[in-house]
């Protein structure tokens, strides 16, 4: 951080001339990084700590700085809306990530079979990713609404008793969000895995053919392990998307029917900006933060922090 680097410029005045000149040369670089350093300090660290601090207060409409210990957290874990949110994000996260990985892998493998119109197919599979979650949510809400959408379509085809009311069914509504999420994200997974497949050594395929190993077996036992880095990348990317799940729910179900499709991000937003319960909202945000940090910290550390600087 520049806060660390600026004192070095001052302290170095006592050092030999050579190092002083080098430091002066680096000063513009430090200054260029200063705004970002300030943002990191104030926003990424400061606002985060502020949120955590607020979760230990009794703030409602306006922030207070009293201390009520873990009272908000115990209220949070007694709160039906929050418990439903937590359960929903687990269901959505598991099905969305595994669904995207499976569908994305299948699409990538099938598209890799020297098919015709590969470019067209790839374009079709990936275009949803360019659209916003609001657009995705509105489109799927229209298609899945029982009155005029899919259910009516199938009934008009002669299946009078066909029922597909997941969108308005308390038990099933969260799965419609999973479907919309899959539609949005599977193409991205395909693109990442396809790039990996194209990097697989052609000799490997020759060797497998000589040995007479069936193609599906090669994909499952040889290629898939080789794609591990891509699978990890896709998983992390999808998992961050899961935590941020908000717009899709707002556009598609508004958390309903009832509270059936509430998610943590929406719980926080509602309590901060509509229900005037800042302390409870920030407590829920802190739980989200802890969840993400626990999952990601070791991975980010291993990938980015440990290998210091560029290899010269």
């Amino acid at each position: 951080m520049a806060i660390v680097s600026i004192p070095t410029a001052v302290a170095s005045s006592a050092r030999p001339l050579k190092s002083r000149r080098r430091v002066r040369m680096r000063l513009p670089a430090a200054l260029a990084l200063l705004p970002t350093a300030l943002i990191v300090l104030v926003v990424y660290i400061g606002c985060m700590l502020w949120t955590v601090r607020l979760s230990f207060t009794s703030s409602t409409l306006l922030p207070k700085l009293d201390w009520v210990g873990f009272a908000q957290y115990s209220r949070l874990f007694m709160n039906d809306r929050f418990l439903v949110s937590a359960e929903n994000i687990l269901i959505f996260g598991t099905l969305f990530v595994s669904g995207c990985l499976i569908l994305g892998f299948l699409l990538a493998v099938f598209i890799d079979q020297n098919v015709r119109a590969e470019g067209v197919l790839r374009t079709i599979f990936l275009y949803p990713y360019a659209m916003s979650f609001v657009v995705t949510g509105v489109a799927w809400q229209w298609f899945l609404n029982p009155g005029l959408g899919l259910q009516k379509l199938v009934r008009d085809m002669g299946f009078e008793n066909f029922t597909f009311d997941w969108l308005v069914n308390q038990e099933m509504a969260i799965y419609t969000i999973v479907i919309a999420g899959l539609w949005h994200g599977a193409g991205l997974t395909m693109a990442i895995l396809l790039a990996g497949l194209r990097g697989v050594d052609a000799d490997l395929w020759k060797a497998a053919r000589v040995d007479g190993i069936p193609t599906w077996r090669v994909y499952l036992s040889v290629v898939l392990p080789l794609l591990r880095p891509m699978v990890v990348t896709a998983t992390v990317l999808l998992a961050t998307g899961v935590v941020k799940l908000y717009d899709l729910v707002v556009a598609m179900t508004l958390g309903g029917p009832g509270i059936a499709t509430e998610v943590p991000a929406k719980f926080v937003m509602d309590h901060l900006f509509e229900r005037n319960n800042i302390a409870l909202g920030t407590a829920a945000a802190t739980i989200m933060l802890i969840t993400v940090v626990v999952i990601l910290a070791p991975w980010v550390y291993a990938k980015y922090v440990r290998p210091q600087g560029r290899p010269a």
């Binding site: 926003v43 990424y44 606002c47 985060m48 502020w50 949120t51 607020l54 922030p63 935590v243 941020k244 943590p264 991000a265 926080v268 937003m269 901060l272 800042i278 909202g281 920030t282 829920a284 945000a285 802190t286 989200m288 933060l289 993400v292 940090v293």
Partner: peptide, 8 residues
């Protein structure tokens, strides 16, 4: 980190 952590 989820944006909700920074928003308020």
């Amino acid at each position: 980190i989820p944006y909700q952590v920074f928003l308020y």
